[in-house]
């Protein structure tokens, strides 16, 4: 069984929901990424989504855009992201890791090379924001052969036909975007999300995580009962880089991890 399947099976058995933090690899510094990943797991994260920095992160709001820019200023490449994953895996063989990014860096490396290297580094899933199902058949086949799940986004605007098309290619889990907007937006509508999730569940048994717009324990706890997991990105990164002159990078990382602990207890309550 894949790490992702094992985690979702265990959570279901215990009646719990997945907590999925998102950080960008190499932000705010490459040296901090692996320690931060371990700390997020200690504070209750079940799965980690690791952003692969890109020069043109079209679907991101301002907070995550800046995270991509900082990572690129630190010269973080896809190759380096895979090295960070290898390092993380030295002391954590269980927590699923999903890389999230844009198509071009992967295209440039080549899907086959990426799939082989990612699998041996210990990557479990890939979410390519700008890779809709129409373009994804071949990449999905290559990834699956290497044991990597291709994770797809579903949006409030996805029609039933599209939901069917997407679930036919997806594995691991589905990522449902909670709102029309970019990451970190504030226009979350719980009722609309709940209706969307119900319509998706008519076509698939895959676990569904919900992301975009989850800021704290309250918003996470409101969404968690409707799905199998919640993704927290912008709110986490905001804490990570809060310009608090008297705090060290490590202290800020601890603050960020504390948000994960807060959300953990809110969704478990």
């Amino acid at each position: 069984m894949s790490r992702l399947a094992a985690v979702f099976a265990k959570l279901e058995k215990n009646g719990r929901k997945a907590l999925v933090p998102y950080i960008v690899a190499g932000d705010p510094s490459p040296a901090l990424t692996v320690p931060l990943m371990h700390e997020l797991v200690r504070q209750g994260a079940d799965i980690l989504e690791i952003g692969v920095p890109f020069s043109d992160p079209m679907a991101e709001g301002p907070v995550i855009q800046l995270a991509h820019e900082r990572a690129l200023a630190n010269k973080v490449t896809l190759t380096m992201v895979l090295e960070l994953v290898t390092e993380f895996r030295k002391s954590d063989q269980d927590t699923p890791l999903v890389l999230m990014g844009y198509a071009n860096p992967i295209e440039r490396m080549g899907y086959q090379v990426f799939a082989d290297r990612a699998a041996s580094a210990g990557v479990d899933g890939l979410l390519t924001v700008d890779m809709p199902p129409e373009e994804a058949e071949q990449p999905t086949r290559i990834l699956r052969a290497a044991g990597i799940d291709n994770i797809f986004l579903l949006a409030p605007t996805s029609s039933e036909d599209r939901i069917k098309k997407i679930v036919s290619l997806a594995s691991g889990y589905l990522y449902c975007v909670s709102l029309n907007g970019v990451t970190g937006a504030g226009n979350l509508d719980i009722k609309a999300v709940s209706e969307k999730l119900a319509s998706i569940k008519r076509f698939t048994d895959l676990p569904i995580t919900v992301g975009f717009g989850i800021k704290d324990g309250v918003s996470a706890a409101a969404l968690a009962p409707l799905c199998e997991g919640v993704v927290v990105g912008s709110a986490l990164i905001e804490r990570l880089v809060a310009t608090d002159a008297d705090k060290t990078v490590e202290q800020r990382a601890a603050l960020a991890a504390a948000l994960i602990a807060e959300i953990r207890s809110a969704i478990d309550a």
Binding site: M58, P132, E135, L153, A155, P156, S158, S159, R162, V177
Partner: peptide
């Protein structure tokens, strides 16, 4: 060519 956009935009 093609249509490499996030899912939200496919509808539009």
């Amino acid at each position: 060519g093609g249509r490499f956009v996030s899912e939200t935009l496919v509808f539009a």
